[in-house]
Design a protein around this nucleic acid. Sequence first.
DNA 1: CGCGGCTTTGATGTTCATCAAGTAAAGTGG
DNA 2: CCACTTTACTTGATGAACATCAAAGCCGCG
Lengths: 231, 231
Amino acid sequence: MPEILNTSACNKCAFRSLLFDNLTDDELIDLNVNKVEKKYQKREIVVQQGEKIKEFLYLKEGLIKLVKKDGMEKEHIISIARPLNFIGFLSVFSNDKYQYSITAVEESVMCFIDLEVLKNTIRNNGIFALEVLEKISKISDDIIQFRMMIDRRQLRGRIAYILVMFAKQVYFKSKFYLPLTRKEIAELIDMSTENVIRILSEFRKDDIIRIDGSLIEILNIGQLERLCRFG
Amino acid sequence: MPEILNTSACNKCAFRSLLFDNLTDDELIDLNVNKVEKKYQKREIVVQQGEKIKEFLYLKEGLIKLVKKDGMEKEHIISIARPLNFIGFLSVFSNDKYQYSITAVEESVMCFIDLEVLKNTIRNNGIFALEVLEKISKISDDIIQFRMMIDRRQLRGRIAYILVMFAKQVYFKSKFYLPLTRKEIAELIDMSTENVIRILSEFRKDDIIRIDGSLIEILNIGQLERLCRFG
DNA sequence: CGCGGCTTTGATGTTCATCAAGTAAAGTGG
DNA sequence: CCACTTTACTTGATGAACATCAAAGCCGCG
C-alpha cells in the first residue's frame, strides 16, 4: 500500500514555479487543502486502467510507466515518465476513466489534486489554463514523437534509441542502471524479450556497451547514434 | 494555390456550438476579424513541417492528413482527420514550428485564426480554456490510441482495423470510397504498398470485401472484426 | 530447498519488405 | 485528341528480419 505523506504546503512546493507560478496564494491554498501526496514502492500500481478519474495527478519524484492492456494478452508500455512529464494529464480532461494503468518503476512520490478543484482553478484563471494547455500539448506531442521514432525503426535502432535516450535525457551520463527489466523494455518498444537480450549482447560483443545486469555503460555513443539513424 | 473564401461571421459558424459556445459576442468578433478561410484542392499542402506557427487552424470541411518526414526517406502519416478532429491543435501550444505537414486528402476548407488572438481569448476566458483543453486532450488521446492499435497488430489486422474504422467511424456505411491511395494507406499503417494491395486482394478472394478501384464494400464485417482482434 | 520470475543462447519457421516486371489509369504537352 | 510520361496498382519470387519455441542457468523469496 502506498504511504501517505505529510504534505508540505503547495506554495512551498518545488514544482510551483513549473506550473503553478501564476496562481494566487488563495488558489494555491485551495488546491493545497484538496490534495494528497503518496509514496509508492517499485512495482506498486498507482492507478488501474478503467478506474474512474477523480484526481489530477503528477509525479514529484521517481519514475513511472504508462501501461495499456489489450484483452487478456500482452501489456504494452506507452511511455515512461520522470517528474515534470506529468503523464497524469493524459486523458484526464477528455475521459472519465483512466485509459491506461500507471505503475511505479522506481520508488516514486505522486501528488493527487482533486480534479474538480483543479478544473475550477482553470476556469477562474485563464493564464494558468494556457500553461496547462502548453504542458499537456508538449507531453502528448512527445509521446507521439517517441512512438513514431520507435515504431519506424528496426530492432537494433530501437534499442540504440532508448539507450541514447536514457543516457542523454534521463540520467545525463553514460553509465546508469536501466530502470526497466528486459521484458519491460520489450513491452516499451514492441519487440520480444529474447531479441532485446540478443541485441544488447550483440552491442556488448561489438564493444558498444558494457553490461552488468541492469548496469549499463555506453562505450561508443557515436556508434549508437549511427544505429539510431540507420537502424 | 488555395482559394481564399468570403468568410461568414464566426457567430454564425456551424462550429460555434462545438467549441466556441462559451464565448461572448465580443470575443467572437475579435476572433472573426483575425481569421481567414481557405479552400484547398486534393493534395494541396496546407502547412509544411518546419514552418513557423502563426495561426491556430481547424478543418471546416474535407479530409486532411498529418505527415511526418524523416530525413530524405519515407513519409509517415500520423493520422487523418475529419472536421472536429482539429489536428491543428497538436503542437500549436507547445511548439513554435509545425512538427508535421498537413495536406488535403480531399477538397477541404480550413479556418485560420490568429494564434495570439486565440491565446488571449483563452487567457481571458477560463471556461473556454477548459473546453479547448478537453478537445486537445481527446484528440491527442485518440491519436495515441490509434497508433497503438495499429502498431501492435500484424498486417492483416491493420488492414482490417482501418477498413472497420472507415466504415463505422468515418462513412457510417459498409460501402465507401477509400480516400487514400494504397501507398497512403501503407504510410498510415507502417507497411509496404505491395502488402496493402496483397492483403486487400486476399480479403477480396475470401469474400470479406468487394473492391472496385477505390470503392470498397464490406461484405463480412464480423470476419473483419475477428481479424482485428486476432491479427 | 524449491518455486517462479528474470535472463540468456540456439534452432526453427513465419511474417514481412524488397526486388522485379507488367498492366492500368491519369496527367501533360504538342 | 493522341502520343508520352508519370503515377498508381497488381502479382510473383526471394531473402532478411523477427517471433516463437525450447532448454538451461541464475537469483530472490517464502
